[in-house]
Design a binder for these strands. Structure first.
Lengths: 341, 341
DNA sequence: CTGATAAATTGAAACGTTTCAATTATTATA
DNA sequence: TATAATAATTGAAACGTTTCAATTTATCAG
């Protein structure tokens, strides 16, 4: 195995100089640099990452700990495609800056904090990327306690400042309510994401505020808790209808649930987009292709992934304090919403 | 920072014994083991992973190198959701066996092999997981050359034996042709996945064989090349229709493309599932919910992810030679196929 | 109780880097 | 030309483990 030592010997410099080649190239004279470059190219040499990490105490790796079960899908995450898009962007951005992403799944929600402890203790990563924050997020409280670098996609209600990127869900809902109100809707239903999730709280607040502002009717029966699945959309719709509550429009936790809602409507001969307007959240690629195509609150998820990773690496490298970034969602109007009948 | 040394001192044993606690626990006497356990629990100690890797020359990490662009989606991968499902399963399975997954994206196809070289040179991972194999896959040829452990999801046409898990795409198509033939279809179209991909070749062969077997009409105009996108489905359909070729059924590279085909049909007043039967590939969760719901060849993708990771770790740990696993796809019959009009 | 054997434990030498104080070479200044 | 200041380079020590030959302790047969 070739090491920095071999390179040094062949290039007729000291190992410290070869080390500087990688870590402080501007300390080297042009000639020395070139001399070393040739040898390294020649051997296709790459420095041993574990040795580097051992000495330098950083890994140039970012950790992500998803909750996975072999049957189900990624667990506490906003929703599948959103996660994939986020991951794609995060991966691209981190690769760009010379970082890798270490994923180590946890099969049970409760083991999550343990896993963070483990990865920190083993010094496997320099920082973490968190998704799907809770109102009081244990992981964030733990990482804050440990002063371990991280950034979350999503806020929480923890008092201390901490780094996050989030989408302004309240604003998204407010814009949508304004739009619906403009179409004449007053009786608007709302399927909340699961309780405990921060996005759920934020969006609900936005909903309540906007409803009041536009003189809409807030019917408690029209506000039900669901989750991000297609199935849940169906169940939630049934719950609202069966309560005898009459609505002309409905918010869903995400596009997938919106699809479930639309299917359930068809089964009951309610025409989605005509009898009841539907608004999703996320803007999956597919949502434009459904029938009716889905009006939805679009999260710029790739942009969020990019921002998150870059902000995290800034923290890691330049000790930028607490980046707190809010991005605007965008209401994408399609066929699933219409003027009130 | 606590080290094995501190633990050793406090537990009044040698550092070698503490090391054995982690690596050869059965060498220790029950009492010694317990003594150490208590100290370790007390300190919440985790051994430094870089130090372990440096000495032991393995990392307990599995590499995945996706092709990502900040705009587009994961590139050379079968299709988005398939990748996510695979990743979820792979993550769960590897976590189970004490491995993490290191993802380091590459922004350009051509840089792929370079990235493999880098990760190998830096000793970042013990093995690789490859997806989306090509007929002559450069990555596989390189890894084989280097004798570096890997397993691929997908076969190639390289002469040497190497480890893979694959779905029997030919069988899947054959079953589907048999099914269509049973419904009276004879003029069946086929949208190929991109040329160069191994799955493309395998499926086309299956198609040709089955068509012959069932006395179907092979019209060259009915066989076009597409890709895994919705857009491509649309274009491919138009190409076939515009060629004047009359078909009663059509295979698509995946469910997404099938959706595009169905949309394009609607635009031309062709009724998907009635005028032309459509068969997808993958069986996305959503496919059951489209209108018409999609008949498709289902890949047991989570199972494949599990098998792949376990086979790879077997190679790494027990030097199991060349696992070569083929799993059967399953034809899922829904509304997008019907008796020929 | 002895000697032989097996089981448990020890500790020093690596693994391949980074770091940094010390040294040497180069350049600028008077 | 001598001196000071700066730029380049050096190499030994450390990072926290694993490994393994050597040593100690325990067990067993006779």
């Amino acid at each position: 195995m070739t090491t920095i030592k071999d390179i040094a010997k062949i290039a007729r410099v000291s190992i410290g100089t070869v080390s500087n080649y990688f870590n402080n190239p501007d300390l080297l004279s042009k000639e020395t640099y070139e001399k070393i470059r040739i040898v390294i190219d020649d051997f296709n040499f790459h420095p041993h990452s574990a040795a580097r990490s051992l000495k330098s105490q950083h890994t140039r790796k970012i950790g992500i700990i998803p909750v996975v079960s072999p049957q189900d899908n990624f667990g506490a995450l906003p929703s599948d495609n959103v996660f994939l898009e986020f991951l794609a962007a995060a991966n691209a951005a981190s690769a760009e800056r010379g970082y890798g992403i270490l994923m180590e799944a946890v099969v049970d929600d409760h083991l999550q904090v343990e896993k963070y402890k483990k990865l920190i203790g083993e010094k496997q990563v320099d920082g973490f990327l968190l998704l799907g924050t809770h109102v009081r997020d244990e992981r964030i409280m733990y990482l804050l306690d440990e002063k371990f670098p991280f950034i979350s996609f999503g806020r929480t209600e923890i008092g201390q400042p901490y780094p996050y990127v989030d989408v302004d869900g309240a604003k998204g809902i407010e814009d949508a309510v304004a739009y619906l109100a403009g179409l004449g809707h007053r009786r608007i239903g709302f399927i909340k994401p699961p309780d405990g999730l921060m996005c759920s709280k934020i969006r609900l607040e936005g909903f309540m505020n906007a409803m009041e502002k536009f003189n809409c009717v807030i019917d408690p029966n029209a506000i039900v808790e669901g989750d991000f699945s297609e199935e849940s959309g169906k169940i939630s719709l049934e719950k609202i209808i069966d309560s005898g509550c009459l609505i002309t429009a409905l918010f869903t936790p995400n596009d997938l649930a919106a699809l479930g809602v639309m299917r359930a409507m068809s089964e009951r001969s309610i025409k989605p987009g005509k009898d009841i307007s539907i608004i999703g959240f996320d803007d999956l690629k597919l949502s434009a292709f459904w029938n009716p195509s889905l009006t939805t609150i679009s999260q710029p998820i790739r942009h969020i992934g990019l921002l998150a990773v870059n902000a995290l690496i800034d923290i890691l490298e330049e000790r930028d304090e607490f980046p707190q970034i809010i991005v605007e969602p965008r209401l994408v109007i399609r066929e699933s919403t219409a003027i009130v009948a």
